[in-house]
Write a protein that binds this DNA or RNA. Structure first.
Lengths: 228, 228
DNA sequence: TAGATTGTTAATCGATTAACAATC
DNA sequence: TAGATTGTTAATCGATTAACAATC
């Protein structure tokens, strides 16, 4: 959850903080800004102030201005931000002005849902390979486009497409083993849907999605039904 | 993202901070501790120190001890924490020592994946209703157990099962409308898979899951392939 | 010009960490 | 007893906010 110092051959840096010294927590908000700005653009809005954005996102206008100020000056006093322009700039900053190839491991229900999702492409990502070790699944197609391949094919696909990002959508028991395979193949970032904390080398970034973590966070604030 | 002050008839409190004054960020880590402890328990480990937990989670032992200290004294000097006992205590603190009913809106690929997932029950949650407005889906069953019902049935199910938690798994365009229906029905917490920020009354807690947000966070730290 | 909003500074607020007495 | 680890305090570190000069 925190910075872990990574010592490599040629440079010293941390995983969570950029060499430029921009806090990771700021980077984490930029995709949310981008998502909102694209929605505004789709609604035909040409200009937005930090105050308007803040209201829409439930955060302060000061935070938005401060966050953006790490990367340059994108607004105009008295007016606000040009929506299309700020979108472009954020895409460049986050490096999603091109499409990144992604491999997906796990072709269960969740894997199918992810493979079928058509919201990746226009936000900078494309699934270029789906892998599973179940012999009953290998050879089948997902969403009548992508073939399900055995895990042993991962290295080839990763090399061929220069893939740096992987999704793990396998059961918890299999996740650590899968992540080892991915790291070995050269994957640099993993999005893990399996409900556990992976043990990985420091040069690999992992993020987690586990709905139950969110639920359990919520229930702390809820009142139990006493009557039942 | 921050505390928003909620003024109700009878009491003043914030959404993100408990009346007891325990920081929301601490609450957010407890489910991760719980998940890890349950895994340790399943592996047969009876005792764990804050240091061991910290290493497993990639956080400091001091943080774990500090977090837990908000709720009581659960460890033993020189030994550490009894895994089973700490599990039980965390479940009580998070109120997941019983099972919460949850409604799911959206029976697309993602909805099916969520409805079929068998990892909710033993962590405190059960899907008691699945809703969709597509006439082609209504009446079908999900995972040959749960019937897909029209959104108009939401209020009845929510009342009958005293449901406080909902999952939104519909396209972005439909999400705001669905959330209005849920709030109207009395839902108190929403887990939203649609890629947008919902506009909701302050007494309703929302959390978001959007894989692209994670991807875009990751790409900031990746190097683009220059050769392609 | 008058009004609005930016970018930035300094102050405030809050979270993490280091350190250690207490104690198993 | 000696070694280990907790719970807690105080110090450090970092993030958010308020405020305002600059300026469109």
């Amino acid at each position: 959850m925190n910075s872990r110092t990574v010592t490599q051959d040629h440079l010293d840096e941390t995983l969570d903080e950029h060499k430029n010294g921009i806090p990771d927590i700021v980077i984490g908000r930029l995709p949310v800004y981008l998502r909102t700005l694209k929605l505004l653009a789709a609604e035909g809005q040409e200009v937005a102030s930090s105050q308007e954005l803040g209201e829409r996102l439930g955060i302060s206008s000061a935070q938005i201005r401060k966050d953006l100020s790490h990367f340059g000056e994108f607004g105009k006093q008295g007016t606000g931000y040009n929506v299309a322009y700020l979108c472009k700039q954020l895409e460049k900053i986050l490096k999603v002005d091109t499409v990144w190839p992604v491999v997906l491991v796990g072709a269960g229900y969740l894997g199918h849902a992810l493979a079928a999702y058509n919201g990746f492409e226009n936000r900078g990502f494309r699934i270029v390979g789906v892998f599973d070790n179940d012999p009953n699944k290998i050879g089948n197609k997902v969403g009548d486009t992508i073939l399900i391949e055995p895990l042993s094919n991962i290295p080839l696909t990763v090399r061929r497409h220069k893939v740096q990002i992987a999704i793990i959508a396998v059961p918890a028991e299999a996740a650590q083993g899968v992540s080892d395979v991915l790291v070995e193949a050269g994957i640099k970032s993993i999005l893990c849907y399996a409900p556990l904390t992976l043990n990985l080398p420091n040069h690999v970034r992992v993020e987690y999605i586990d709905p139950v973590i969110h639920f359990q966070h919520m229930t702390f604030y809820l009142e139990k039904n006493t009557s039942e």
